[in-house]
């Protein structure tokens, strides 16, 4: 057995072994009655943009690619989706308190404007989630208007 054969075998064994380490990928839940999409706050193009650019990490309805089930890439997907949902989960939108909804909308404006979100590493494999300047503006204008609607609804 040549040396590189041994190395290859070793690598294969390691790759198989790490598949047994649980990745804790957040589960997919299809029934989300409190989701932002059903709240009436968003529709049309902005709704589509949010679903393609944000919902893989910020909702209970991610579209997991094959490599999210294979270690070691599954660990990164699990970490990012877990942290994403902790920060904001649009599937729980209507359970979120009014003031926290406002803080989220306000953060959407700055995160999108400064291009911190969607995460650059996510965009390397999800070119469909890339937002151009006009799409970013669309989301920012929506969030700005939605903030006023959220306040008005609370006052009624």
């Amino acid at each position: 057995m040549k040396l590189w054969h041994k190395l290859l075998l070793g690598l294969a064994i390691i790759l198989i072994a790490i598949q047994f380490i649980p990745s804790d990928l957040p589960p997919i839940t299809t029934e989300n009655p409190a989701d932002l999409m059903g709240s009436g706050l968003v529709d049309g193009e902005v709704a589509t943009l949010l679903k393609t650019a944000c919902y893989d990490c910020h909702s209970n309805t991610p579209d997991y690619p094959w490599y999210s089930y294979v270690a070691p890439s599954s660990w990164l997907v699990a970490k990012d989706t877990r942290e994403g949902r902790e920060e904001v989960n649009f599937s729980n939108w209507e359970k979120i308190e009014m003031m926290d909804q406002l803080a989220i909308l306000d953060d959407i404006i700055s995160e999108v404007e400064e291009e911190h979100m969607p995460l650059p590493i996510y965009l390397t494999l999800h070119s469909e989630a890339k937002l151009d300047a006009s799409q970013r503006q669309l989301i920012m204008d929506w969030a700005e208007a939605a903030m006023d609607i959220v306040v008005e609804d609370e006052e009624e």
């Binding site: 009014m98 003031m99 926290d100 406002l102 803080a103 909308l105 306000d106 953060d107 700055s110 903030m147 006023d148 959220v150 306040v151």
Partner: peptide, 26 residues
């Protein structure tokens, strides 16, 4: 300054103030 500007706070509209207050609380 970008995170919070008190000079701007009082002049801003209610929705912005409430958003800021929520973040301050956190």
């Amino acid at each position: 300054k970008k995170k919070l500007d008190w000079d701007e706070f009082e002049a801003s509209k209610k929705s912005k103030q409430l958003a800021t207050m929520s973040k301050i609380n956190e």
